[in-house]
């Protein structure tokens, strides 16, 4: 993979790669992509894709409300919170 392509991909993946990191990962990424090329040797024209090994249909159940009393407990796990809200830098 070209370096430009790697940086576009990193931006899509929301990863702030340093130049040193990009250099280090570039080889490893290309090595795997080259390996993936071997999939082209297989004739897949008559094969349906398998998305899940054993799941055949949607799993549905009744939509019954259940109590959930750990709201505060969950908000408290945020790196910064205030008055039961999660704090992030200004977006506007």
């Amino acid at each position: 993979m070209e370096k430009d392509d790697l940086l576009i991909t990193a931006a899509q993946a929301q990863l702030a790669l340093s130049a040193e990191e990009a250099g280090r990962l570039e080889t490893a990424v290309s090595e795997m992509l080259d390996y993936f090329e071997m999939m082209n040797e297989v004739d897949v024209s008559n094969l349906p894709p398998t998305t899940h090994a054993l799941v055949r249909e949607n799993a549905l159940r009744e939509d019954n409300p259940n109590p959930n009393n750990n709201q505060e407990d969950l908000v408290n796990r945020a790196p910064e919170n205030e008055d039961n809200f999660i704090v992030i830098p200004n977006v506007l």
């Binding site: 990863l15 990424v29 992509l33």
Partner: peptide
Amino acid sequence: DEVKLRILLGTY
């Protein structure tokens, strides 16, 4: 590094 590698390849 290994996690970043897999996220990059997966995104690609």
